[in-house]
Amino acid sequence: MELRLDGISHRYGDVEVLSDIDLTIPEGRIVCIVGPSGCGKSTLLRFLGGLEVPERGAVLQQGPRPADCLNPLTYIFQDFALLPWRSVAGNIRLVLEDSRLPGAEMGRIVDDVLARTRLTDFRDALPKQLSGGMKQRVAIARAMAVNPAVMLMDEPLSALDSQTRELLMDDLVSLWTRAPFTAVYVTHNLAEAVRLGHRIVVLSRRPGAVREIVEIDTPLAERRMGDPALDAQQARLWQLMRDEAAAADAELADV
């Protein structure tokens, strides 16, 4: 399934946050959206999943959804959004309980996603017992349980320390390599963007508009930390964003 943003503009009160955005999310690719803070990239992600409605323009989905998909547009949140009173398995089960699947089938899906995210040993642990990286893996497992058409990831690694971030990036890459999924990945971290994005969309500062779209052809599995080609891409992106970020940083907050 493919997602398309068609002339999206939006304002909060008097503040225009997004202006005339056209964008296509092709099936089976990861599209990273980067931009200075306050450029509206998280707002854009909420439009994509239908959690918010843009003032102008349309969000369109095209093509068939996967056969056993329970929730085509599925988010992964920066702060994990796990229910603290449910165990790891219970948190995953939560999103299946409304689906009218037979109990045994639900159990099978839970076991499967736990195995794929290597969480089987932690199935009965409560969120408070888990590290941040583990929590985000539970959230990823939960997202995979509904077999989404598109994963909408809102700075999923920003709350984690840099070592954990590296480990989770490896996990995401291997998950995608085994079964390619479609994803929109919002981040302000350029290293994440060049490691995970097939296509990187650079937004300008507020009001956010598409400044440039960069395609990276190196297969995900072959991208490594310290790869000179990636570093060059990252440096180029930084050049693009640097002035915008400086200007955005100097703006007075008036909201």
Partner: peptide, 18 residues
Amino acid sequence: VDRTLIRMGQSFGLSWVS
């Protein structure tokens, strides 16, 4: 109640009762 949890529930298409 943490609004992000409610947002999460909505994003997974949970029913109002759930």
